[in-house]
Simulated assay, not measured.
Amino acid sequence: MSGKVEPFQIDVAQATLDDLRERLARTRWPEGETTGGWDQGVPLERMRTLCGYWHDRYDWRRCERMLNGLGQHRTVIDGLGIHFLHIRSPAPNALPMVMTHGWPGSVLEFVKAIGPLTDPARYGGDPKDAFHLVLPSLPGYGFSDKPAEPGWNAARTAGAWAVLMQRLGYDRWVAQGGDWGSIVTRALGAGRAPGCAGIHLNFAFVPPTAEDLASLTPAEQAMLGKAQRYQEDGSGYAKQQSTRPQTLGYGLNDSPAGLAAWIYEKLQAWTDHDGAVETVLTVDEMLDNIMLYWLPGTATSSARFYWENRALDPSSPKVELPTGITQFPGDIFNASRTWVERAFPNIIHWREAPSGGHFAAWERPDLFVAELRDCFRQLR
């Protein structure tokens, strides 16, 4: 399949789904937390409720049909099979855009934005704002292959995305990303990937310098406080995944309840809500995403992406290409424009959204779509 782009369809064996239900039924539950709320992780009753729904009512075939209807493909780049969605716009002058997800997300983060981005006229928008969309699964995620050798970091992934866009016939395009997707997208911009006209990020944390720290504004002090709370109380998962992903993977790959808890906690912590992630994402949406880790068995390989990128410097590389940045208040980090401009000196769009969190396209597709239209309208 090397060099070729081939259609791809998901067809999970019924025996695999039966095995999942049997594992859920045999879950060996721990005792409950000794404090109220989420202080020690996912509360036992919340986890029982999620897994009970997964066992009794969840319908994977619904998600399978939806993904199969969107236009899935696979192609081999640099020796690795890459899975991606390719949705072409009916608009004649649509702008091609590659959008990259992160952890613990998937291409499903973007599903609610696909229609408005590819066919804005159908959703009350201007057809001049249309995009052709390319939505790849990161190496070791979803239905992309799992790297069997070290080296598949963000820079190498960005190189693969540039090849993918060329292979699809796009000679001028833009890129977007959040979480690890923002790191890959930043690498595309920094490397001036052939054809890449500009980028947009919904996650762009650049740390302050010593000079900045000496003259922080109240807003910047709040940003640093938020970052410090994350480092002290919310980043244990990242330390484990960036140092011992293999050890972690044995449990997550064997136990659906364990995998679901690992991801569910972050969905709760990183979305913008008034107390429960279920007010922002439906249980089906969360389980669909979890299934893209369970079914292909990518808990270990996806965690390994942290290991591959453990030496990243958030202050570099510098991106000279036109850059749009939207910060969402519920994200795990926010950064001052003063700090960010050092790494992204050519900012053409900057906005602080009124709501939304780490999974911007998933949580607030309306705001997300408007931001991309506003940003890339300048590059058409």
Rank of each mutant, 00 (worst) to 15 (best):
336 S>E: 11
43 P>I: 11
296 P>A: 13
358 H>C: 07
310 R>K: 15
248 L>T: 05
274 D>A: 15
35 T>S: 12
290 I>W: 00
273 H>C: 12
300 T>I: 04
202 N>Y: 01
282 T>C: 12
132 H>L: 02
314 P>A: 11
49 T>Q: 14
113 A>P: 00
115 G>C: 04
54 W>K: 04
185 T>G: 11
152 W>S: 06
10 I>V: 12
125 G>L: 07
307 W>Q: 02
355 S>E: 13
236 G>L: 06
153 N>C: 08
108 L>H: 09
119 D>T: 14
170 Y>I: 07
332 I>K: 03
282 T>L: 12
247 T>V: 13
323 T>I: 06
158 A>K: 08
222 A>H: 09
261 A>L: 02
306 Y>D: 01
19 D>A: 13
342 R>E: 05
210 A>L: 14
142 G>I: 05
199 I>Y: 04
155 A>H: 10
369 V>N: 01
230 Y>F: 15
293 Y>F: 10
180 W>E: 02
99 M>A: 15
372 L>N: 12
131 F>L: 06
271 T>Y: 02
166 Q>P: 00
80 L>I: 03
66 M>I: 01
169 G>M: 03
219 A>I: 05
132 H>Y: 06
347 I>S: 06
143 F>A: 12
275 G>H: 08
85 L>N: 06
72 Q>A: 10
78 D>R: 06
67 L>K: 00
187 A>L: 08
279 T>N: 13
298 T>L: 01
176 Q>I: 04
348 I>P: 00
221 Q>V: 09
66 M>S: 02
301 S>E: 07
24 L>Q: 03
225 G>D: 14
325 I>P: 07
1 M>V: 06
103 W>C: 03
159 G>F: 07
219 A>R: 13
159 G>M: 02
103 W>R: 07
296 P>S: 13
252 L>K: 10
64 E>Q: 09
45 E>L: 04
234 G>P: 08
226 K>D: 11
144 S>H: 09
